[in-house]
Design a protein around this nucleic acid. Structure first.
Length: 1067
RNA sequence: GCUCGAGUGGUGGAAUUGGUAGACACGCUGGACUUAAAAUCCAGUGGACUGUAAGGUCCGUAUGGGUUCAAGUCCCAUCUCGAGUACCA
């Protein structure tokens, strides 16, 4: 009987489909195991051999887990919304749904050929309305939620509204837009509905806002940060510019810390966790506010404390008056009750004593500006008490009673705020990771796009600043990035006041400061930051050194082991302590606070595309309203053209049926927009990552029409146990999916906070591109070996025209329709053949190095393809595809077949196996099991080869050996295993067989071949009994003639004996 | 620049806890079968030296150091390649 793999494979693929062999059972009493692949985007090019690598690995694991008795969920589906189908629609007018349908059919046919154990009854497609109904539903959930920092989770927007009603927004700690106006409960209740709505929009987890976006003019859409590579679009490679647009955003920044913390609890590759950690980019430091000086103030005086006042303050601290010292000594003792501070700065004044908790100022009466001060303190919500030196000296206790009595009635309503941001004195807020270097600030730099630029620029500098801002805005992001070395900037003419010294700090503009990070402004410390240093040097700004025993004349000193000097109260401290103290002091004076900043930005969620999920949103008086979930899905409308409209609206602007009838709850024709109850629908669609951010949950309950996943299904399947896919999704899909999972968990829709316990990145399979070399300006091609110094142009040639010895089929090349330009070309051959050049590159259509798995399946079989892909090397490593090696696994499968067909027909014996045969089997069980559990699939393929070679050498045809062997192999080569299993007389699928149990008794040895080494180098081996004692072992070895020959009469210094392992003689 | 990962025969790779480096396979060489080829089977295959032969000797895991009885594996430095990220304050 021949091993006819084509026939066998087709037979069993049909059997599995007909019998639904791999259907997962919901709520089974068996332990569950969920194995998931990243679902593919069904591109028109179909699968190449690189795609199935991860699928084969996960399939082996899924099949293995079934043999282990698990109820395995191993689904597959399609991420079927996306750009290529739409681009194709623009060119041809073919509806993307049709293109997608056709591509999916091709994918399915190709996948089926490889024999995956997918449960196809659970297939999902993100572009199906039954699926995206729930994507729209999740969007609504996000819209109806806000992030409460106090509970550290997302909550229903209703809880926010009730907080507003109760006490306004002053006490609410939320992750929300910046600069939200403070209002009281009364004010909130008095606001018109529209105003309430727009306030809520500033808190929602998905919100509409005018933001700087990455606009790609060629694609006519915005892109997320992770869709851009070096200033060009990931798809198509078109330039991307910055543009202000009103867009939907997702408040992923609310989850920055939890996304970071969650990495501790999941078994994902180290490098991937690193990528996410970098992307989130947590940095700890301080936010510092610098007061901009008015022109008059810049002349000399500052509004806050002057340098002189500061000196006076120090003086006063050092030498308190008798009365002051007396009272302070008593107040200090009361610490626990109400903490007082002495000589404290409040706004522009320095008060004698203050209790911040009780909002009480205690001052010596009789100051020159007493009335002014009182006014200010009371405006800030403090009560003011007056005392006199005389009273204190006479009876401190009485004064204390007076103070304590007053403390019992503090003004409750007022909120303590030291910031007095008036229009005349704007502030510049900066973020710094090095607050300890604050005394080294000698200038400030704003991004050219910073809001304050126009406000603070002086008349004298206006022209220069405007010219600079204009010049930088013209430069693309790309240019700005490429050109890091050129230092450019301009002085605004304005100054700020240093918060601790009162020094005048010049304010500059420079494009090395990015508008999109932090606050778009920096406090420049040239002695501690190279970019600041370069800027200062270039524009001849003072560089003040604040590091002890460090020379900064040649460059900045950025080491973390610095000791601070020349910095008042920070002198002689190291980074950590100095930072803490600097933050403490800034907080005390109301000029800043400790802050953690994240690089992670909120994700833009709108795309100006057709082929994506429509938003369940309509606009009433310009404000977005979500559609009641009961009326979902909002189905993508038909359009004439897939391009943007003439007036620049997204493609959905072409739809004629795209208005929401709020009375009849349905989508109606745009003609009806005249009606009062009909409103325009959102024209943007959702980005590609919307559908892929939750699909793994849908597989648990794919057809549920009442909910996105039922509680029962979610509680049974919980999360993905093993997720396999490419590392290119590190900062896109995998971050967004974690974000949505955490959100749905917060809102009580899911039982787990991380969606995938373990994740493995399969390495890319690289193509081996082939090149022909054309002499420049001619139609002559030179064989690779004849390339001398002549100028040639290398051209990719399709790898199907080249054999494995790198010889080009010249005739086929000339006649190939793709190369019709060259059918008259001349070829300079060597030894009668044309040799191509080879290079390993990413496998892609444009490089003509794509190898199709279908051809491999026809020629060698799916089992051979599966085994070969695993045999190529470690799963996680990138490796080049070289078809030559496939003959190895092909002949292995033939040898395997032969074991069961020694006489040409099927035949196994019922005879008892020998000890040797049992040893081979159990050694294989042990190794294969270990390998699968370590995802070391390449080594288990070798193990099978060894086992089959050894059994063939033993001429073993015993059923007791060959039957369990099939179960071991079946995850890797399921078709041949299923066929032979069937021939052994089984009527049910091998998939239901349990994995053979390893028994160590068969591997017990009585002797061991010991390596005998001399000074660590193995010289010969000796077979010795394993039960020999250490001493006996040493004696036997030393007595051996070979040992004596090695030692050449010398006495060994030392003998190391590790029983069962090694003997090492040191001489 | 920063972060992470990797360097082992002609090639893909193996060596799971520091303990016989090169498993398994490709390729190559020789042989068997055949008119011939393919397929299949057998033998050899890290390098250098040595021996008629069995065998023996030395070197060898990017480079240089170190720890250890013993290092591909651990530590330090250097070089090369790959991936991610990038004026991130």
């Amino acid at each position: 009987m021949e091993y006819n793999f084509n026939e066998i494979e087709a037979k069993w693929q049909k059997y599995w489909a007909d019998n639904q062999t791999f259907k997962a059972i919901d709520g089974s009493t068996l332990p569950k195991y969920y194995v998931l692949d990243m679902f593919p985007y069904p591109s028109g090019a179909g699968l190449h051999v690189g795609h199935p690598l991860g699928y084969i690995a996960s399939d082996i694991y899924a099949r293995y887990k079934r043999h282990q008795g698990f109820n395995v969920l191993h689904p597959q589906g399609y991420d079927s919304f996306g750009l290529p189908a739409e681009q194709y629609a623009i060119q041809t007018g073919q509806h993307p749904a049709l293109t997608t349908e056709a591509n999916i059919a091709t994918y399915r046919r190709q996948l089926d050929k490889i024999g995956f154990s997918f449960d196809w009854s659970r297939e999902v497609r993100t572009s199906n309305p039954e699926y995206y109904k729930w994507t729209q539903w999740i969007f609504i959930q996000l819209f109806d939620s806000w992030y409460n920092k106090d509970t550290d989770k997302a909550e229903d927007i209703k809880t926010l509204v009730s907080k507003f009603k109760k006490a306004g927004n002053a006490q609410v700690r939320a992750v929300a837009d910046e600069d939200i106006a403070v209002f009281t409960a009364e004010q909130w209740k008095g606001y018109p509905k529209e105003q309430q709505e727009s306030i809520l929009l500033q808190y929602r987890l998905t919100y509409l806002s005018e933001t700087e976006v990455n606009w790609c003019p060629e694609l006519g859409t915005v892109l997320a940060n992770d869709e851009i590579i070096n200033g060009f679009s990931e798809r198509g490679g078109y330039p991307v510019i910055r543009k202000k647009m009103t867009q939907w955003s997702m408040r992923i920044s609310a989850y920055a810390q939890r996304l970071l913390d969650g990495l501790q609890n999941i078994d994902w590759p180290h490098s991937l966790k690193d990528a996410q950690t970098n992307w989130i980019g947590r940095s700890q430091g301080a936010s510092v506010r610098f007061q901009v000086l008015l022109p008059a103030q810049a002349e000399g005086k500052t509004s806050k404390m002057s340098f002189k006042e500061l000196e006076a303050l120090k003086e006063k601290r050092a030498n308190p008056t008798k009365a002051s010292a007396l009272l302070w000594a008593r107040l200090k003792k009361k610490k626990a009750a109400s903490k007082f501070r002495a000589n404290y700065t409040l706004g522009n004044y320095q008060v004698d004593f203050v209790c911040l908790a009780k909002q009480t100022v205690v001052e010596f009466s009789g100051k020159d500006n007493q009335a002014q001060r009182k006014d200010y303190f009371e405006k800030e919500g403090f009560q003011v008490l007056y005392i006199t030196s005389k009273d204190i000296e006479k009876n401190v206790a009485a004064v204390l009673v007076h103070i304590e009595t007053a403390l019992q009635f503090p003004k409750t309503a007022a909120i303590y705020k030291t910031v007095d941001a008036s229009i005349e004195t704007p502030e510049i807020e900066v973020f710094t990771t090095r607050p300890d270097t604050i005394f080294g600030v000698t200038f400030m730099t704003l991004a050219p796009e910073h809001d304050l630029v126009t406000k603070i620029t002086t008349a004298a500098q206006k022209t220069a600043v405007e010219a600079y801002v204009k010049a930088t805005s013209k430069r693309s992001e790309r240019e700005r990035m490429a050109d890091v070395k050129t230092i450019s900037g301009v002085f605004t003419g304005a100054y700020a006041s240093h918060p601790l010294t009162g020094d005048k700090i010049p304010i500059w503009i420079g494009d090395y400061v990015l508008a999109s990070y932090g606050t778009g402004a920096v406090m420049a410390v040239p002695c501690g930051d190279q970019r600041d240093w370069d800027f200062a040097k270039h524009f001849k700004i003072v560089i003040k050194n604040i590091f002890k025993d460090v020379d900064v004349s040649e460059g900045a000193y950025a080491e973390k082991d610095a000791v601070i000097a020349n910095s008042d109260f920070l002198n002689d401290l190291k980074v950590n302590k100095a930072s803490k103290l600097a933050i403490f002091e800034l907080e005390k004076r109301g000029f800043g606070s400790g802050k953690i900043n994240y690089r992670l930005r909120d994700a833009v969620f709108s795309r100006q595309r057709y082929w994506g999920e429509p938003f369940p949103v309509y606009y009433k008086n310009g404000l977005p309203q979500t559609i009641d979930p009961a009326h979902l899905p909002i189905v993508l409308p038909e359009v004439e053209k897939y391009l943007p409209t003439k007036d620049g609206n997204p493609p959905l602007g072409n739809a004629t049926e795209w208005a929401w009838d709020s009375r009849n709850k349905k989508v109606v024709s745009n003609d009806k927009l005249k009606n009062k109850t009909v409103y325009p629908l959102e024209l943007n669609t959702m980005p590609g990552w919307a559908g892929s951010s939750w699909y793994f949950n849908r597989y648990m309950d794919p057809t549920n029409e009442g909910t996105f996943v039922s509680k029962e299904a979610a509680n049974y399947w919980r999360e993905v146990d093993l997720y396999i896919g490419g590392s290119e999704h590190a900062t896109g899909h995998l971050l967004y999916a974690r974000f949505w999972q955490k959100f749905l968990f917060d809102r009580g829709h899911l039982p787990v906070e991380e969606f995938a316990k373990k994740l493995i990145n399969q390495g890319m399979i690289l193509g081996t591109s082939a090149f022909v070399y054309r002499i420049e300006g001619t139609n002559t091609f030179v064989s690779k070996g004849l390339l001398a110094d002549q100028k040639v142009q290398p051209l990719h040639v399709d790898v199907s025209l080249v054999n494995s010895s790198d010889e080009l089929d010249v005739e086929a090349f000339k006649n190939h329709p793709m190369y019709s330009d060259f059918n008259t070309a001349e070829f300079l051959l060597e030894d009668g053949t044309y040799m191509v050049g080879r290079e390993v590159e990413k496998m892609s259509k444009s490089k003509y190095n794509v190898v199709n798995p279908d051809a491999i399946c026809v020629e060698h079989g799916a089992d051979a393809l599966r085994m070969f892909e695993m045999f190529l090397g470690p799963l996680e490593q990138a490796k080049p595809w070289k078809t030559s090696g496939i003959s190895g696994v092909s002949s292995f499968l033939k040898k395997l077949w032969k074991l069961y067909h020694t006489t040409g027909v099927f035949g196994v014996s019922e005879e008892e196996p020998t000890q040797d045969e049992l040893k081979i089997l159990h050694k294989t069980i042990k190794k294969v099991q270990e390998d699968i559990e370590h995802f070391s699939f390449n080594t288990s393929v070798s193990t099978f080869m060894i086992a089959v070679n050894e059994l063939a050498a033993q001429k073993c045809c015993k059923k007791a050996i060959l039957e369990p062997l099939l179960v071991l192999i079946s995850p890797y080569a399921p078709h041949i295993a299923e066929e032979l299993w069937n021939q052994l007389g089984h009527t049910s699928s091998i998939a239901t067989a349990s994995f053979p149990v390893f028994e160590s008794k068969y591997l017990v040895e009585s002797s061991k071949v010991y390596p005998i080494s001399f000074n660590g180098k193995m010289r010969f081996t000796l077979e010795l009994p394993l039960d020999l004692s250490k001493e006996a072992l040493e004696k036997t070895v030393l007595a051996h003639e070979k040992t004596r020959a090695q030692l050449k009469g010398k006495t060994p210094k030392k003998v190391i004996v590790v029983p069962g392992k090694i003997v090492n003689i040191v001489g």
